[in-house]
Design a binder for these strands. Structure first.
Lengths: 358, 358
DNA sequence: TTGTACGCGTTATCAA
DNA sequence: TTGATAACGCGTACAA
């Protein structure tokens, strides 16, 4: 950590008596301005009983005038409560996590808590993600909501042991931490059922390993499993083998086309499906005319009728709401112990997957 | 804020001697475990000189064993530094803000700061947004980054007066607060130039008022202005008149079609453009065959070659980076006073706007 | 090399 | 109805 140097607090040319920039009025300043003690200020501002109405008015006026905002850090130290939830998301730039974030914020506010968010920074290293979690813990949040398809549960447990924690958006079974997620196995199977129903008998599935994404590996595994059970000829393609990045899609698409006879391609998410469709477009191919394509997640803007993705909708609002409820209930002692809640998703028929023309 | 009740701190059935849940080990616990004083722990953990190597090892082991994470609140109080930047975004669910968030996080980390994010909660009331800003201030962040197309600068100034602040992603000229943004006037004009260049002579522009979005009003106003200057027949349609929500697009599209002879439609953002294209699709119309359509923002996933949006790219990574640099420079005294930096965007030719076939 | 003591801004307890 | 005072967890002079 950087050392504090005298220069930090001494900008040039400040008028005498003026507060140094960066320093904010304290309860003491308000007390002085209002001509009372800081205890009275504290009570007046928090609406505690036992303060003369006239005094309350006077104090509030003084506070308002100098733009006093109580220091939440100090308040937290003395009150042993911060009323703050810590949210960790892997990558705020993707609509999936963005929607979750919004849902968290909304429900946290409804429950009387604030939510602060920390994310990894660009490079998605496990180490970075753990550091982000520590940041949240160091802020003494009262609850933790973790959204990452990659961070191993072992890295989360130590925190969950001390702070009410919920893992949101991914299946988890560890008994020491709660989770709220959309049923990945059911979703993968539902998506596969649809493909089978449409008459496809030779299907490519882009798969993931658990290491790169627990959700995407679970759902694609379920897809493969169900297709096999239905007697379909399945061609799994591990995304990791073609460069993990979504940009490697082109090689996968090429390989799938080279395989010959594939009439449907199942992608692990809408983002990947979009990349697939782009690759196909480069080759003058479209879905579902040349090959059927399915996505997964079903979140705006991918659900646009313009794109017409055949996909699986995860009810992110509900997941976000239940996640917050779970941690808050734990914090307030309304519930004890971890709970795992699986939410059902929903098929989006779309147009990118169609019946196989015999 | 909710009052603290006794129940909050008294969970049922806890084993005697055990730490209450939610309470985390303190420096004092580590000191006891390592058999030294807390000062030594502080110095050992912060790598300060003057601690015996053997003691450092001992302390670190004890801290590690009990999962000690220093309380950033307490640290901030005594050190007068929190090394934390506060980020406010209007709506984390949209890709535009999501990408900005990522850029902030990355650069903050690079500069040795953590970033905590607060957002409004669903309903985008100004009051809510101001409350979110107060949350950040109460956390005693050292710098403030504000991203909202709606929050009036008057509501930001009071904070900017005390904390280094930058308004990111929207043009601002007030001398008491910095800003980093993509040149909206240049962008609106650039987009309009393109439309003129393609030969369109009767063009509909979906406009916004400054009240609903400062950025979108600025760029659409520039579009209208440039089209008029070029002698084009301009038909402005105020989005607010048709229900501010993006869902009202359908009525606007209908009105534009009813107007007759319009060959190009300029939308205020890619999101709106997507809604427009959906409406057209419902009527069996496509762009650019039946009408040319332009968007704005140029951020993934709207930039997909599958959609082929004709749009204007805002360099969000650069905006994010420069915003963080600006606040951090202010915090560290490397720069003084507000600076307004306009960044140039870039045309994305796309396919949704085409030359008018004579 | 280590420990003691104080202050940071706030809330809560208790006395006035 | 108000004011003094003790925590809270940490960093850091200063003393040992």
């Amino acid at each position: 950590m950087r050392e504090l140097t005298p220069e930090d607090n001494e900008p040039v040319g400040r008028a005498p008596g003026e507060r140094p920039p960066g320093s904010v009025p304290t309860i003491h300043d308000v007390a002085a301005a209002a001509g009372v003690s800081k205890s009275v200020v504290s009570r007046a501002l928090s609406g505690a009983p036992g303060v003369a109405a006239r005094t309350v008015t006077k104090v509030k006026a003084a506070a308002e005038a100098m733009g006093y905002v109580a220091n939440a850090n100090a308040r937290g130290m003395s009150a042993h409560r911060t009323h703050t939830l810590g949210v960790f998301v892997r990558d705020a730039a993707t609509p999936f996590y963005g929607h979750l974030l919004t849902a968290f914020q909304e429900q946290a506010s409804a429950r009387g808590y604030r939510a602060v968010t920390a994310t990894g920074s660009g490079s998605f290293s496990i180490e970075e993600e753990r550091r982000a979690l520590e940041t949240l813990v160091s802020l003494r949040v009262e609850g933790l909501i973790v959204c990452s398809g990659a961070l191993p549960v072992e890295d989360i447990i130590p925190f969950a042991h001390r702070i009410p924690t919920v893992i949101a958006g991914r299946p988890e079974t560890d008994p020491s931490v709660s989770s709220v997620y959309c049923d990945e196995v059911g979703g993968g199977r539902g998506m596969a059922e649809r493909v089978v129903q449409l008459g496809h008998r030779r299907v490519a599935v882009m798969t993931h390993t658990a290491a790169s994404s627990l959700t995407q590996s679970a759902r694609t595994e379920a897809m493969v499993q169900h297709l096999r059970d239905a007697g379909v000829d399945v061609l799994p393609f591990r995304c990791e083998d073609y460069g993990l990045e979504i940009e490697g899609t082109d090689s996968i698409v090429q390989a799938i086309l080279d395989a010959g006879g594939v009439t449907a391609l199942m992608a692990p998410s809408d983002s990947w499906a979009l990349a697939v469709l782009e690759s196909l477009q480069l080759r003058g191919l479209t879905a579902p005319n040349d090959i059927s394509v399915t996505g997964y997640d079903g979140v705006k803007p991918f659900t646009s009728s313009l794109l017409g993705f055949t996909s699986w909708r995860q009810p992110l609002n509900l997941i976000g709401r239940l996640s917050v409820d779970d941690v808050v209930d734990q914090i307030e002692g309304l519930s004890q112990g971890a709970r795992h809640r699986s939410i059902d998703g929903e098929l989006i028929p779309g147009r990118t997957a169609a019946a196989l023309s015999a």
